[in-house]
Amino acid sequence: MTDTTNRVALVTGGSGGIGRAVCERLAREGYTVAVHYAGNKARAQEVADAVTALGAKAALVGGDVAAENEMAAAFDAVESEFGGIDVVVNTAGIMLLAPITTLDLDDLDRMHRTNIRGTFVVSQQAARRLREGGALINFSTSVTRTHFPNYGAYVSSKAAVEGMTLILARELRGKDITVNAVAPGPVATPLFLEGKDQATIDNLAKAAPLERLGTPDDIAEAVAFLAGPARWVNGQVLFANGGLG
């Protein structure tokens, strides 16, 4: 088991539903947590306050995940305040759904900028900065397996995340840094629920053998496993979806 009490984690998208659950879960494990936000500083401050209420240290860092200079500055700030970074959890992402035949290409570009370029930029910084024994956890989606209609553009961005994650794990040979991705199934977050009617939500909730939607805490549990004790899990995509697909 890895001693987590002196480890520092940077969570991108830390003010979001899954991001907040990850920050709080890592705080319970004793991590110092840097909560990243792109635009909503007040919500990120709420997460940081929740982290400190759990007895852990917290800090805020802002910036566009797809902007190299802004992410370099965010990593610099965390290293300056806490002495280094041991875990990077890259939850930041956007999801815009439409059939491939009608998707607005501006939406495609927005998703790919955040989900592909953003993941690449954060992964690049993590690969350069993580201390020995570190962990990078990116985020994919279980729809890369289930192939639901309307998810074509989103899944294409997340398939790219899986590809770069698995390759980076092998490029970091000898550095004692694990690189994995978590692929959630349907999780009851605002990102997931937005734009769906109740019948669609109910059908998705029944799709997995466990017959419920996942919770942010379910996903945070998988992240905590990969961040700390799972030192022999590397170059993998962990499908946290209740058995869906």
Rank of each mutant, 00 (worst) to 15 (best):
T2Y: 09
D3R: 15
T4F: 13
R7D: 00
A9F: 07
L10C: 04
G13E: 07
S15F: 03
G17S: 12
I18H: 07
L26K: 00
L26Q: 03
L26V: 14
A27P: 09
R28T: 14
G30R: 13
G30L: 10
A34H: 04
V35K: 05
H36Q: 11
A38N: 14
G39P: 02
N40F: 02
A42M: 08
R43S: 14
R43Q: 15
V47D: 13
K57I: 04
K57D: 07
A58P: 10
A58I: 06
A59Q: 06
L60E: 03
V61G: 02
V65Y: 13
A66H: 11
A66K: 12
E70F: 00
A72I: 11
F75I: 09
E81S: 15
D86K: 12
V87H: 01
V88F: 00
V89F: 11
V89W: 09
G93M: 01
I94F: 05
M95Q: 15
M95T: 11
A98Y: 01
P99C: 01
P99S: 05
I100Y: 06
L103S: 08
L103R: 05
L105Q: 15
L108P: 06
D109K: 09
D109C: 09
H112R: 06
R113G: 11
G118H: 07
V121G: 05
S123A: 15
Q124K: 14
Q125S: 15
A127E: 02
A127H: 03
L130C: 12
E132P: 05
E132F: 13
G134N: 00
A135T: 12
I137L: 06
N138Y: 08
F139L: 14
S142R: 15
H147L: 12
N150S: 07
Y154N: 08
V155N: 09
A160M: 06
V161Q: 13
V161W: 10
E171T: 03
E171W: 04
R173G: 12
G174E: 05
K175W: 01
N180C: 10
A183D: 00
A183H: 08
P184G: 07
P186R: 07
G195D: 04
K196G: 10
D202I: 12
A205T: 06
A205E: 11
P209K: 08
T215N: 09
P216T: 07
D217N: 09
A222E: 08
V223I: 14
L226E: 04
A227K: 01
A230W: 06
R231T: 14
G235I: 00
G235R: 09
V237P: 05
A240R: 04
L244T: 08
